[in-house]
């Protein structure tokens, strides 16, 4: 397998992670951020030298939900919003498996909002990648829980009046121990942050800001996918503890990217279950306890 520091592994390695014979071309629109993300994800898997047999890629429903179809490992395409519940079952039943969950913004924090905060609270060792394109792309661009105020959608024709969630703040507040944000434009940063998220023991959230130029972008006149990528570049500011978020926002830098939280001290759920539930129960039984 490739060296962990080698980001430009041989293409043949990357292709071995794809179900190329059956599933390509993929179903995403030309220019969609998900193709770039899939590329980045596969590069990370190859760079990390993961075993395909011990990697589980799980997703919910929607455009992002199609990611597992293309990846040649154990893949699970679940019901809308429920990916993290299935992932919890898989991880707890077989903690040796590497579990990565892909969700869209509606998937993760609208219909799956409850599962999202509880997975974060448990700090179970799952990496959740939330692709945030501010819209329900597959159903035609309806407003989502991350659509900014005032933006238009077929279900918000005069402009959205629902205040949006900040997915990363939500994850931090709910107890996720690794929280980061990147964009499709910053694919090298996505590579680094995803690598770090996968290595982190505990619930890690990586929000990847993406663009949907075919519905959200078209309705709101945001231009082509290239224009929207440039917007990601122009609005982004890398997080540092010294960053004055309000000042940056006033300057039009309202997209804070980078590593936002990392806490390696909180115990992980499956470890805790082994240590604090299974071992005492078995010891008690061996002592002849009730």
């Amino acid at each position: 397998m490739a060296d962990a520091t080698n980001q430009t592994a041989e293409p043949v390695d990357r292709h071995s992670w794809l179900r190329g014979n059956k599933k390509f071309p993929h179903m995403w629109c030309p220019g969609c951020g998900l193709g770039t993300l899939l590329n980045t994800v596969i590069r990370v898997f190859v760079a990390k030298g993961y075993d395909k047999n011990e990697t589980v890629v799980i997703s919910g429903i929607g455009c992002t939900g199609r990611i597992p179809v293309y990846v040649d490992c154990n893949t699970l395409h679940t019901a809308h919003g429920r990916a993290l519940t299935f992932a919890t079952g898989v991880k707890l039943a077989k903690p040796n498996l590497k579990v990565i969950v892909f969700m869209g913004d509606g998937d993760a924090v609208a219909i799956g909002g409850n599962h999202f905060i509880h997975a974060a609270r448990r700090n179970i060792d799952i990496t959740a990648v939330v692709v945030n394109n501010s819209t329900y792309g597959m159903t035609g661009g309806q407003h989502s829980p991350t659509t900014p105020l005032g933006m238009k959608a077929p279900t918000a024709v005069t402009g959205n009046i629902d205040p949006p969630f900040d997915i990363c703040n939500l994850a931090v507040a709910a107890g996720a121990t690794f929280v980061a944000r990147s964009t499709i434009f910053h694919y090298q940063q996505t590579f680094r942050l995803l690598s770090e998220a996968l290595e982190h023991k505990g619930f890690s959230v990586l929000e990847v800001v993406s663009h949907c130029h075919t519905s959200f972008g078209r309705i709101n006149k945001l231009g082509s996918h290239l224009d929207m990528l440039k917007q990601q570049r122009d609005h982004a500011v890398v997080f540092t503890p010294e960053l004055d978020v309000e000042k940056a926002r006033a300057e039009g830098k309202d997209l804070v990217i980078g590593l936002l939280k990392k806490d390696a001290t909180r115990p992980e759920y499956c470890d805790q279950y082994e240590k604090l539930v299974i071992q005492p129960s078995q010891a008690k039984q061996n002592r002849g306890g009730v």
Partner: peptide
């Protein structure tokens, strides 16, 4: 909903 999801996940594992 989550219980049943976890049950299916564990069964697949």
């Amino acid at each position: 909903i989550a219980s049943m999801g976890a049950v299916i996940g564990a069964s697949l594992a």
